[in-house]
Nucleic acid binder design. Sequence first.
DNA 1: ATCGCAATTGAAAATGAATTTCATTTTCAT
DNA 2: ATGAAAATGAAATTCATTTTCAATTGCGAT
Lengths: 165, 165
Amino acid sequence: MLQRRIDDHAPPSREAVREAQDVFYKHLKRVGLKHTEQRDTILRTFLETRDHLSTDELFRLARKKDPKIGFTTVYRTMKLLAECGLASEVAFHDGVARYEHQVNRRSHHHMVCTSCGVSVEFFLPEVGKLEEEIGRKHRFDATRHTFQIYGICEDCRKKDTMKRA
Amino acid sequence: MLQRRIDDHAPPSREAVREAQDVFYKHLKRVGLKHTEQRDTILRTFLETRDHLSTDELFRLARKKDPKIGFTTVYRTMKLLAECGLASEVAFHDGVARYEHQVNRRSHHHMVCTSCGVSVEFFLPEVGKLEEEIGRKHRFDATRHTFQIYGICEDCRKKDTMKRA
DNA sequence: ATCGCAATTGAAAATGAATTTCATTTTCAT
DNA sequence: ATGAAAATGAAATTCATTTTCAATTGCGAT
């Protein structure tokens, strides 16, 4: 199931894409890895997306740009992108790992419909403060958090009501 | 890796256990299922635990009480317990489903050490309010949420410092 | 520009948790 | 007690993820 994402962000600008590429290439250099065409294609494909994509979905998209790209390469590239902060995993509890890109995006949280999978993003500055506060209290070096709300969206509720009638 | 749980709760009292059994049996009746010795053993085993247990870990514990209990039965029973609210899944991002029991427990959140897996529980009443508020705003019927903070605990930080020295 | 070698690639195999199958056994309403 | 329906558990299956490995490619040194 494709997990549609509802937010208020435009796709990254040309400059933002170049910046992201720069971050990626510098990361590769830093850890002694090479810059390849496949990795570049995968990054560009990823930045064009707005949904929460599984590795397999991303693989299908990348293959449209370059039919000889393999699943394994996409899989490995996503790990690299996550390492340098360009991608982050979002775990929605449905058994597949999903990624969203972090270019031009502020920290945010998700509200997920457990019926159709749609997700709405929201932002609450206080959540970041809570992370810091709780970390300090328990002497953790807090690095990140996940905050997800699960429920049923309006559309699914309406559909459900219609079915009953 | 066993996910040790740090909290301030005592194990359920004898009465709490009986109450939980009652909830379970009534649920079974409601959905037309039968009360079996295995299911009872698994519930009792589960209530005695305080860590975040995978199905396999629970299976090993239940097997001590009754060596002929099978993994499949534990797996299926955990689904039933989750259905009637006695168990809830906690997904910590490490690829295995874990459960914690909900007897005598208030809603809470987790701070997880990404190095050793230890988790500390904390409770923030405002998070429940945020769930409600955000749900209303986006017209979701919000049913639950997860809030987890990831980081490195004090012990792991110390060990790390020693290694460097 | 070429060489050499380490990194990369991608198909295929392996892994491992989750889930289903099915023949046998058990529960429980009658 | 009886028998229909459900439960059990060993084994098989599924499916996402991860590893393996032989062939290919990138790139720094020359």
